[in-house]
Amino acid sequence: MVVLLAAGCGDNADEPAATVTAPPASATSAAPVPSTPASQQPHILVFTATGTAALTSVTYELDGKSTAVTDRKLPLRLSVDVPSDGLRHEWKLTIKHGKGNVELRAIFNGKVVGTSRGSTSGTGTASAGGSVLG
């Protein structure tokens, strides 16, 4: 069995607030206006997994809420919304797998915040976790 843990954090608390101005009522064509200012839109946490192993289970957690993933084939890519609330949010990705190797990566708003690698000739578990600022 192989168990790896990597932690990371991201911080986007200094992002400026966006101002949205609606087009005049007489305009005939205008770009869509976001219903939520950019400063309040959720952040994106992306989990990726690559490698050669057959996956037996994939689970991710955000703030203690666990979600089992039914698509268990490599390569794997999952996108999770993280509230833009200025609070710290804990995350974890756990993959159980058979013979082969697995590489995990967590990306928060385009920045890598955690990685993990595992290889086994039997069965193993690869895991990465950390926290990000929403």
Rank of each mutant, 00 (worst) to 15 (best):
S66W: 11
T50N: 04
V33E: 03
R72V: 05
T70R: 08
D14L: 11
G8K: 01
G64S: 03
T59K: 14
T52P: 02
T125D: 01
N101D: 12
S127R: 04
S26M: 00
P42C: 11
R117N: 03
G86S: 00
T67W: 07
T48Q: 12
K96D: 09
I107T: 08
K99G: 07
N109D: 15
A54D: 14
S79K: 11
H97R: 09
Q41V: 08
Q41F: 11
G114W: 06
S57E: 11
K73F: 06
G122Q: 15
A106E: 10
P83M: 06
T56N: 14
T36M: 09
R117Y: 07
K96T: 04
G124Y: 14
D71P: 00
G122S: 15
I44Q: 12
E15I: 06
M1Y: 08
G114C: 07
G98W: 14
T115M: 12
A6F: 09
K99Q: 14
W91H: 08
A54E: 14
G134F: 04
G64E: 00
H97I: 07
L87A: 15
Q40H: 10
S121P: 04
K92G: 07
L74F: 06
D11A: 08
A18D: 15
A27G: 02
V46A: 10
P42T: 07
N109E: 15
A6H: 08
P75S: 06
G8S: 02
G98D: 12
P37T: 12
G100L: 09
K65Q: 10
S119M: 00
T123I: 03
H97T: 13
E61P: 02
S26Q: 00
A49G: 05
H97W: 13
H89E: 13
A17M: 09
S39G: 12
